[in-house]
Write a protein that binds this DNA or RNA. Structure first.
Length: 654
DNA sequence: TCACGGAATATTTTT
DNA sequence: TATTCCGTGA
């Protein structure tokens, strides 16, 4: 293809044969370059393909790559798209400005921080940092008085974040989504204020602050908005159905002048409303940009006819009607199956038997996935898989950088980058034997009182028994110099210091040590400590060393276990959806809220549309729900009463 | 003040 | 599964 050229209707010659590679709807989306464009891309309809070709096309048209902005929700998504575009065309496509909303916000804010009264060296708090800060504040504000059933720090962080993302006051979020915490409302609000204040004081921005501050910047400073906006002549946004109100406003301000903005999404796959995403954004887009051209991609290239028939049936049950009906040309295929197992363990065993069977039919394990609503739903299955020695990888669980040992090492670096980083100080101090919260606080105060240096630490004196570990830390800090040493050198010294602690704290330290090796390899790539730390917060590698090795070596063929959320955008030959039990999926928490139930339905739709040729739903016939004290025994309402010629029903007994 | 062990608990979570 | 919470005893 690379040597031929392809004239277009307008007479321009292209090196890619777009007409050959794309269907008419895709082609139109790719070539429609002036003015606002909304692409409704159904499951498996070639959304990524369309975006990729469009990038290549714009570059071929002579648009400077840096003037094209491609915003996605993960760094991986944008990298993949740009790489694919580069393969189609040439390396210019890799120069396209691509990234996540958050990385874009970060870069812009670093440049214009001063305007908002921010220090451009601000530190980014990831979720875990935010949680520990909340935890500390809670202890400070409310020592001793233990309130029964006070929300855990993770719940608190959720509440705070949701308030920002939905642009709602705290009390409303608690009232709507956490009514059981209403007795604690006052303390929660108090804590929230303290959280905001402390972030400001320390020049910390959490993920949400990045977006909020970017919006403030663009909104309140038209001169800066014009400068930022004029850098990008073309804007493209992926997964638009999962943007929140703040993100939509940011886009409006960025694209307001030229309106060359294309957003791609699928309203029937919007599954992040619980986090503040507003799926109505996609319907509002034409109102925000009058004259929007709307293109629907309705041909599904993924699933066989019987699967598509079922998924259409599922989404048809939505109260809110969606904009398209998918069709496929993939003939043949088996009916999807709904299967009742006696109990959870029977369910696991059935799934395993079936997986073995598929595997014998030459379907590699990596082409089979087990999906579930909540990550703990797979516990029993995991045990059985281990017993049967079937290799699997679980996605959607914990992230590499979120694991304790990685955070430990990073905390040392963060203290070196910013002496007043209280969270990191506490973290590294608490690792030391005989040092608890009280001593940590004492040391932190000593450090602070000296400003700008670790002399506070070096001079600290505690009870004899507590000093031993502190001496080791002192010697670590007296041998490190962030100006003289490279990131990797710092990492090496810290690792040497940290290894004994790792071995003492974790039984599985060899595995964790390998993760740390991986971290070292990443550090090698950085010149600048602050860049490294920012990237770790914003664009962390998300697999542990074991996982990334696995995906690279072809002979390691593993079954995939995943939450439905993490499975979005992926596909497998055969898919199992376990716990398709009313009360689990949909979750019992959503029963009395129309909008949440709708989201659960879309989630089921996302799960089912992942399958290419085989699709199985299973549920245990009986399960006890502790939180409500009820017994769950019906299949998911989303699958109930579907005619046998669309969904086959089976009962198994062993 | 700290360490430790056992019990309780968990919806989903691209940043 | 793995993390967090909480009470206990040194």
């Amino acid at each position: 293809m690379s040597n031929s050229s392809h004239p277009s209707a307008s007479g321009t010659t292209y090196s890619i044969d777009y007409q050959q590679a794309l269907n008419p709807a895709q082609l139109e989306a790719v070539t429609y370059s002036q003015g606002p464009l909304l692409v409704i891309a159904g499951a498996g309809s070639g959304k990524t393909r369309t975006l990729t070709y469009r990038v290549a096309r714009l570059v071929e048209d002579g648009i400077a790559p840096s003037a094209i902005l491609l915003l996605t929700f993960t760094r991986k998504a944008s990298q993949e798209m740009l790489q694919r575009a580069a393969k189609l065309l040439d390396r210019r496509c890799e120069m396209v400005s691509g990234g996540t909303f958050h990385s874009f916000a970060n870069a812009t804010l670093r440049k214009y921080a001063g305007v908002l009264g921010l220090n451009s060296g601000f530190t980014i708090l990831d979720r875990a940092d935010a949680e520990s800060m909340i935890h500390l504040l809670r202890k400070e504000l409310d020592p001793g008085i233990r309130q029964r059933s006070f929300p855990r720090k993770a719940a608190l962080a959720n509440i705070f974040s949701k308030a920002v993302n939905k642009v709602l006051p705290i009390d409303e979020v608690v009232y709507d989504d956490y009514p059981h915490f209403l007795p604690n409302l006052e303390s929660i609000e108090h804590l929230h204020k303290a959280y905001d204040a402390r972030k400001q004081e320390h020049q910390f921005l959490d993920f949400d602050d990045l977006l909020v501050n970017l919006l403030l910047l663009l909104k309140n400073h038209p001169d800066i908005r014009d400068r930022v906006a004029s850098r990008y002549d073309y804007i493209m946004v992926d997964e638009y159905q999962d943007t929140n109100t703040i993100q939509a406003e940011i886009l409006y301000l960025l694209a307001g002048t030229h309106e060359n903005i294309m957003v791609v999404g699928d309203d029937s796959q919007s599954i992040y409303a619980f986090r503040g995403a507003n799926f109505r954004n996609i319907m509002n887009f034409p109102k925000m940009f009058p004259g929007t051209r709307i293109i629907s991609l309705e041909e599904n290239y993924r699933s066989v006819q019987p699967i598509l028939q079922l998924t259409n049936e599922i989404i048809d049950r939505a109260k809110e009607k969606y904009t398209k009906t998918l069709f496929t040309r993939r003939p043949g295929g088996e009916l999807p199956v709904l299967l009742a197992a006696e109990d959870e363990n029977m369910q696991s065993r059935y799934v395993i038997d079936k997986i073995k069977e598929l595997n014998h039919q030459q379907i590699p394990l990596s082409q089979i996935a087990v999906l579930f609503r909540a990550s703990f739903h797979s516990f029993d299955l995991e045990i059985e898989l281990n017993r049967e020695a079937i290799p699997f990888i679980k996605v959607g669980g914990f992230k590499f950088v979120e694991s304790a040992h990685i955070k430990d090492v990073l905390a040392h670096l963060r203290v070196m980058a910013n002496v007043s980083d209280r969270i990191s100080w506490y973290r590294i101090l608490l690792l030391i034997d005989k040092i608890g919260p009280k001593s940590a606080q004492k040391i932190y105060e000593a450090v602070l009182s000296e400003k700008s240096d670790y002399t506070g630490l070096l001079g600290i004196q505690l009870k004899a028994g507590s000093m031993q570990g502190v001496e080791r830390l002192k010697s670590l800090f007296s041998t490190t110099d962030t100006h003289e040493m490279s990131v990797a050198q710092l990492g090496e010294v810290i690792l040497k210091y940290y290894m004994p602690i790792l071995e003492q704290n974790y039984d599985d330290h060899p595995k964790r040590a390998r993760d740390l090796e991986h971290l070292m390899a990443i550090m090698e790539r950085y010149e600048n400590l602050e860049h490294f730390l920012t990237d770790m917060a914003l664009e962390p590698p998300n697999a542990s060393i074991e996982d990334s090795m696995a995906s690279e070596s072809a002979d390691d063929d593993r079954l995939v276990l995943s939450t439905v959320h993490s499975a979005k955008g992926l596909e497998w030959d055969s898919v199992f959806v376990i716990w398709a039990l009313d009360g689990r999926f949909p979750s019992i928490h959503s029963f009395f809220k129309e909008t949440e139930l709708e989201e659960e339905l879309r989630l089921m739709y996302v799960a089912a549309t992942r399958a290419k040729t085989n699709l199985f739903f299973t549920f245990p016939g009986q399960a006890y729900d502790r939180s409500t004290g009820t017994v769950l025994s019906r299949p998911s309402r989303f699958l109930d009463f579907i005619p046998e010629h669309i969904l086959e029903k089976q009962y198994i007994e062993y």
